[in-house]
Simulated scan of single mutants.
Amino acid sequence: MTTNRARRAGALGGALGVLMAANLLNNRVARRWAPLTSAVATGTLVLIARGEGLTWHDLGFHGARTGAVTGGALAAGVAAVYAAGLAHPRTRALFHDERALALSRRRVLEEALVQVPFGTVLLEEVGFRGALPALLGRSLAPRAAVAASAALFGLWHVLPAMDMASANAALGRLAAGETPNEGTGRGGPVETRRLVETRRLVETGRLVETGRLVAGTVASTALAGLVFHALRHRAGLLAPALLHLATNSLGYAAARAARRLDQPSRGSASPVR
């Protein structure tokens, strides 16, 4: 009994270690190599799970036809929601993501067709909807295993959420309630103190806003993890994978479409690279 527990704990620890290493590599060390990193990590997780005696069905590799139909319908729903959002100017602004708009056409295609499916969706679906809940389920009740996996999926997004916050140049201005160049003139100690105080307010505001963004992202992605696992339980891994893929990849197309639709009203169109 003790040997079995130790082996299971070792397998779970190994799986968590693989996920932590992949998270760090994909978000901090070698982002463009994420598809390769994620492929290796996914294969390692499958080997660990299979080595523990888990079946392909346990890992969610079943119901390909049902998964394709369900996932395809959900992907079409995502496309419809994006199209509806783009059709109205008020909601169209939500798609103006500079992280997508700053990319060249080639990089957008790379992100949508390579980085998202192989660098993000593959590992997250097999890891958090397949291997991890199956490994956790050997020691926990089924619902507890799913909840724990969803919580870990939320924590998986801490680094991406921090990147999202640091990429938003308006956070400092909003936090301080001042224009970027206010208080930066030359002068005596009063102006210097104002400059120091402004910087302190900006940094404090950035920390608060970043904390809120990270907490919100963790909570929302943990909830999404529960929804995706329900899909995986009903229709296998393919269903949540297709929904996940559509949500992320179509976002790049939506950002480009939003800019094109808004160009006439802005008077001068910025070049599309």
Rank of each mutant, 00 (worst) to 15 (best):
A147N: 01
G119C: 03
G137Y: 03
V146Y: 08
L140W: 10
A134C: 08
A147D: 02
A151I: 12
L135F: 02
L123K: 06
L140N: 07
T120L: 00
A144S: 15
F153C: 11
S139E: 08
E110F: 14
A144K: 05
A112C: 06
A134Y: 02
A145S: 11
L140R: 07
S104Y: 14
V121N: 08
A148M: 09
V146S: 09
V108F: 00
L113V: 12
L152Q: 10
A134K: 04
R129E: 01
A141D: 10
P133C: 09
G130K: 09
R105E: 14
A112S: 13
R143S: 15
A145I: 13
S149Q: 06
L135I: 00
E111K: 13
G154P: 06
E125M: 04
G130F: 02
E125Q: 01
L152G: 11
G130L: 02
A144N: 10
A112D: 06
V116I: 15
V108H: 12
E125D: 07
G119K: 01
F128Q: 09
L132F: 10
A112W: 03
A131I: 05
V126G: 04
G137T: 03
E124H: 05
V116M: 13
L109E: 13
G137P: 08
A150F: 01
R143T: 13
L152N: 04
A147P: 02
E124C: 03
E110I: 03
P133M: 07
L122F: 03
E110V: 11
V126E: 08
E110Y: 15
E110T: 11
V121H: 07
A141N: 10
R107E: 15
E124G: 04
L140T: 09
A148N: 09
V126L: 05
T120S: 05
F118R: 06
G127S: 07
A145W: 10
T120D: 03
R107C: 10
V114E: 10
Q115F: 02
E111Y: 12
E110C: 09
R129A: 03
G130Q: 03
F118A: 05
G127K: 00
R129K: 07
A112R: 05
S139H: 12
L123R: 11
A145Y: 12
R106Q: 12
R129S: 01
R106P: 00
F128E: 06
R105L: 14
V108N: 12
A150I: 11
V126Y: 01
V146A: 14
V126I: 00
S139G: 09
E125N: 06
A148P: 00
P133I: 07
L135S: 08
P117H: 04
S149N: 09
R106N: 00
F118H: 01
V116P: 13
E125W: 06
G127E: 00
G137A: 04
A131S: 14
F118G: 03
R107D: 15
R143G: 13
R129H: 09
L122S: 06
A145K: 07
L109A: 15
E110P: 00
A151G: 11
L140Q: 05
